[in-house]
């Protein structure tokens, strides 16, 4: 069977998901998820643990049936065409799932053989990643460090040259430097034409995706480019620094007109109405005045642009 909608009038999505829902007993894991991913995109599904990311990935990789809704991958239906999908997707689950008692090379060879190919045939695709662990190819997979396991798992997910790659939380528990390396690898894979769907709880990774979906409690809060999401932030955002940051946090929350205040690294992020006209409407200047009146010292106030984490926090507060 040929992929559907290959005529001249409809665009073929790499992935299309319509009203997917899934519950486990009484617990609703996913509710009415709809989205499309275009060929060659890096699409990020971003949200905390328990938001439904893995359930979504398992449905899209044909490992779990949805309760309702439909989804297709490269035009193939996830329920009726599951065998075809399994041949063309690469999947790296959140939990390390390789054979711990086989060596690095044996794991890779098994995956290549299962997909009717050889390491040699598609070596060019994994070269950048696999060459870093190749010196340890005789080592048992179970004896690898976290970073090495990740590289092996990614190599195994790629060795059959999938057209679409699903990575479920590839950077969880990985230090900031290794995280950056992994994202650089994903950019390279994208340049080879592979569509990548990746989930992460780290909001700062959003900017590395072409488009993202923010997910919480089984629902997408928003789907767009990271830039558009940041630009649609509905409030005025002000960064505040000063002496005694702990006390400052409490006091800021008590000031009328402050909608929310949270710590953001070395400063606090305060949100207020963007275009409020009421007497409570706060600007950077009136905020400074209020704090100085309370006796706070060394106050630094800067209007700032929201980042994805600010946006996520605003969306879940609604």
């Amino acid at each position: 069977m040929n992929p559907v909608s290959k005529d001249n009038f409809t665009v073929t999505h790499a992935l299309s998901c319509k009203n997917i829902s899934r519950s486990y007993g009484k617990v609703k894991a996913l509710g009415n998820i709809s989205f499309d991913v275009e060929p060659g995109e890096i699409f990020g599904v971003i949200g905390p643990d328990g938001a439904g990311k893995s359930t979504l990935f398992r449905i899209l990789t044909t490992l779990l049936l949805p309760d309702s809704g439909s989804a297709s991958v490269e035009g193939f239906d996830v329920v009726s065409d599951y065998k075809k999908i399994r041949k063309i997707v690469g999947y790296m689950p959140g939990r390390f799932s390789l054979y711990q008692d086989l060596t690095v090379e044996e794991n890779l060879r098994i995956f290549a053989t299962l997909f009717n190919t050889t390491i040699e045939e598609n070596y060019y695709l994994i070269k950048d990643i696999y060459s870093q662990i190749e010196p340890f190819k005789k080592r048992m997979a179970g004896a690898l460090s976290g970073g090495m396991k990740q590289k092996l798992a990614l190599s195994c997910a790629l060795i059959h040259k999938p057209s679409i790659l699903f990575l479920d939380e590839p950077t969880t528990g990985i230090d900031p430097v290794s995280r950056k390396e992994l994202w650089e690898m994903l950019r390279k894979l994208k340049s080879q034409g592979i569509t990548i769907i990746v989930s992460t709880p780290y909001m700062d990774e959003a900017s590395l995706c072409d488009r993202i979906a923010l997910i919480q409690n089984g629902e997408f809060l928003k789907i767009d480019t990271p830039k558009a999401i940041v630009e649609s932030f509905g409030r005025r955002l002000i960064s505040v620094k000063g002496d005694n940051m702990g006390l400052l946090l409490k006091r800021l929350r008590e000031i009328p007109g402050v909608i929310s205040c949270f710590a953001f690294g070395d400063s606090h992020h305060v949100t207020t109405e963007r275009d409020g006209n009421s007497a409570d409407s706060l600007t950077a200047d009136s905020l400074r005045f209020a704090l100085e009146k309370q006796g706070h010292t060394n106050i630094e106030i800067t209007p700032v642009e929201a980042n994805i984490e600010d946006c996520f926090m605003e969306l879940i507060a609604r």
Partner: peptide
């Protein structure tokens, strides 16, 4: 790593 995977509000 007490806050790994926790949502941004709860993390704070």
């Amino acid at each position: 790593e007490p806050t790994g995977g926790v949502d941004p509000v709860t993390r704070r």
